[in-house]
Computed example of a mutant assay.
Amino acid sequence: MLVHICCSVDSHFFLQKLQHDYPNEKLTGFFYDPNIHPYSEYQLRLLDVKRSCKKLGIELLEGEYDFEAWMEAVRGLQNEPEKGKRCEVCFDKRFERSAQKALELGEKSFTTTLLVSPLKSQEQLKRSGDIFFQKHGIEFIAYDYRTNGGTQEQSRVTKEEQLYRQDYCGCIYGLTIQREQQHRLMDEMFSPLANQILPSSIQERLDMYTYRNELEEKNIAYKIIKEKFLNYRQFSHKIVSAKTEIIPSYALFYSTLPRKKAEGKVEFLHNNIGYFNREEIMFVTLEFFNSTCNFKYKSVNELLFNPPSVDEELKFRTILTDTHYNLSPIIIVEKIPQTKLTIELNAKIYEDTREKLIII
């Protein structure tokens, strides 16, 4: 039997149940989910599914990540709610490819781990599956492992196996609607040009779960926990002089302006810090930044495209301000400007939760 797989949270429990109920059935996993966005999230879910299938002794095949074709298929359905028409089209596309893969492998039936997801309509899935049975002759088996405490059991398995538990279905449209309803920043879509790994980003989780797999290969015990913290995302930043010249600059992590813009000038210098006369802004030179942190940046532009880690930025902030609680804008420049400036800084600080791996 071919089993279409959407994520490890659904698949691990679902596959365990199939192995128990059908011990003589050879199961082949098929990860085909071009709806998952962004691609780093796709990589993360695939990474965890590979681990899960390996633990269960199930062969896993990966389908094509034809995201553009998926986008075309759901064109015009962007505002459909969860379990609406967009989801139905999404199921149809994934079932079509799963049925084709089952035919290629000589299988007579297929199913999907989506059936166990409480966010999905089983009736909707069954309708899509029945269409492909009539079209291809591949029987769709609709197992119901949600009832009789199945959802609670699935949650237990997820926790015990320390699976990656995503908090959105996968597609950009569902994510957009969900974050708007939650009044939350859609920070999953942030991907800095400089490739700096941001706290609670998909890339941070991808690195952590990759490290988790390495620890398991070495039989090193670990635990994945969650912690609350103050997160930060910077949308844009620019400094313009009185002569309308853009001054190359870099704003450190946690730098914000309440009105996103400030006009004024550096009032005085003290201990290598230039103090602006508005919004508690501080300026430091790249030379001072290099000497304090033992960096070797040749220009601010180099810093922009190859920044240090967030932890290193926070260490410098603490050295400069002698506190862990300082949120003033700290801006790095080649030399302290002595002219009137217009500083634009669009950024947000917000409460967030992230996963953390500890070795035990």
Rank of each mutant, 00 (worst) to 15 (best):
L44C: 06
T292D: 09
I360A: 13
P307M: 13
D322K: 14
E80P: 05
P307I: 14
N294D: 05
R86V: 09
F95E: 01
T323N: 10
P34S: 09
T176P: 09
A347P: 06
T147E: 06
I36M: 03
L304G: 02
I5K: 03
R259L: 15
M282R: 15
E245Q: 15
L56R: 07
E245R: 15
K120W: 07
H4N: 08
F229C: 05
T321G: 01
G29R: 02
H4L: 07
A69R: 15
M208T: 07
G29N: 03
S249C: 10
K226F: 11
A262R: 01
Q122F: 09
Y164H: 07
R184N: 14
Q196M: 11
S98F: 02
K265E: 06
F305Q: 05
C171K: 12
K55D: 11
K223N: 03
L27G: 05
R156A: 09
I131K: 15
R165I: 09
I131Q: 11
L206I: 01
V310Y: 02
K26T: 13
G76M: 08
Y22N: 14
I177Y: 11
I225Q: 09
T339P: 00
L215P: 08
K50G: 07
E214A: 13
G174T: 14
I224H: 02
E313S: 10
F91E: 09
